[in-house]
Design a protein around this nucleic acid. Structure first.
Lengths: 204, 204
DNA sequence: CTGAAACATGAATCAACATTCAAGTTCTGA
DNA sequence: TCAGAACTTGAATGTTGATTCATGTTTCAG
């Protein structure tokens, strides 16, 4: 099923783990700055301060380290947003915090954002997993909120993907491309839209 | 400003125009199926039925023909959606038609959709232009609708990007990845969400 | 009809890496 | 302390494919 799991190269010693970690951090920068195809293994090893051959002690291919990076970053994104959203009193507040958290995350991790997007082409299965996992938990949260009468009913599967798309594009435009607007204002505009709709009277 | 306009190679004869057109059509397939980096100039010329060298009579580089393709496709997308949306009686109906049109467009043009997404990395300025143009006209339409009391006020700049993101992600999930759900149902769920919000009572 | 411009050809060039490998160095458990 | 496992090294290999170029062929204005 996974063409790379055939021989995962897991370090046995502390030195090995440290070197692998250095390579991963270097790859984050190299892939982020140059993109998958422009990125060079030699660029990664140079940034990591190890010899070229060392790379292949820890990874079987360029694609393999890229996948490892995507996995690492999905985890990072999810954790970051989850922590920020956890204490929200209701669903709409959670959406507001979610947008804020995502915008701030993108502003701090422009490289990571680019890498995830590029996964769409380099490792499509990893990319689909990334957003599908996200969408599933989103859908469940919407369902819970509906059960709790915080929001009304709807097609939560479609809604989840729609809401993710909103976050991604707003994050791209107002965080990755431009820093000017405050995350608060953006989050407020979004919350306003999805809370009350384009027809309803202005809430809050 | 544009590093490629230095020597645009515009055909002077009918034969030349036809060959250029064949190359563009071949490129659409080659880039769509293999992605920018996997695509080969020789693949394009083979599909077009011309010799390798002929390519450089019409384009200065692989990137140049890719950009030409993106421009061509933005035009195609916009035209398609515009025609479908034009007769809508009000903004919400226009949104519904827009989602439907986009889903159907993606289902018929999976190659083109992929190419535009990849432009993000290969020709970022073209990609930004593509969505920025889209967002600007979206924003103006929202403003007109508000002036006309079809919708209430809001931060239409943010709203426009949010709505585009919704379309793109819903299109990706329910059109590019999977054909099962009807475009009508999807459009209805989206319209329901953005029309009435998550709080408002179910409309229509 | 005719010469110059436009167009077509595909073998040859050239550079850029990904990946391999044979030889050395460091670590660790007993 | 020592053998073998783990790790490191960087030159060499091999492939791929974009781009160039010298040489034909076709078109078309005058």
């Amino acid at each position: 099923m996974n063409q790379h799991s055939s021989s995962e190269k897991i370090p046995k010693t502390r030195r090995g783990r440290e070197t692998r970690e250095k390579l991963l951090q270097a790859a984050e920068i190299e892939f982020g700055e140059r993109g998958f195809h422009e990125a060079a293994i030699s660029g990664i090893t140079q940034r990591a301060g190890v010899a070229l051959g060392t790379f292949y002690v820890y990874f079987n291919s360029k694609e393999e380290i890229f996948r490892a990076l995507v996995t690492y970053m999905s985890h990072l994104t999810r954790t970051w947003i989850y922590e920020r959203v956890a204490e929200s009193p209701d669903r709409l507040a959670a959406e507001r915090e979610g947008v804020k958290a995502f915008v701030e995350f993108v502003r701090q991790h422009k490289n990571l954002y680019r890498i995830v997007s590029e996964a769409q082409f380099v490792a499509e299965d990893a990319y689909r997993d990334y957003y599908t996992t996200f969408a599933n938990s989103y859908r469940e949260n919407l369902q819970l909120a509906a059960d709790n009468s915080e929001i009304r009913g709807g097609d939560f599967d479609v809604w989840a993907w729609a809401l993710i798309g909103m976050n991604v594009f707003v994050g791209m435009r107002f965080a990755a491309w431009e820093d000017a607007q405050s995350a608060d204002d953006i989050a407020e505009s979004i919350t306003d839209l999805i809370g009350n709709g384009m027809l309803g009277s202005k809430g809050s």
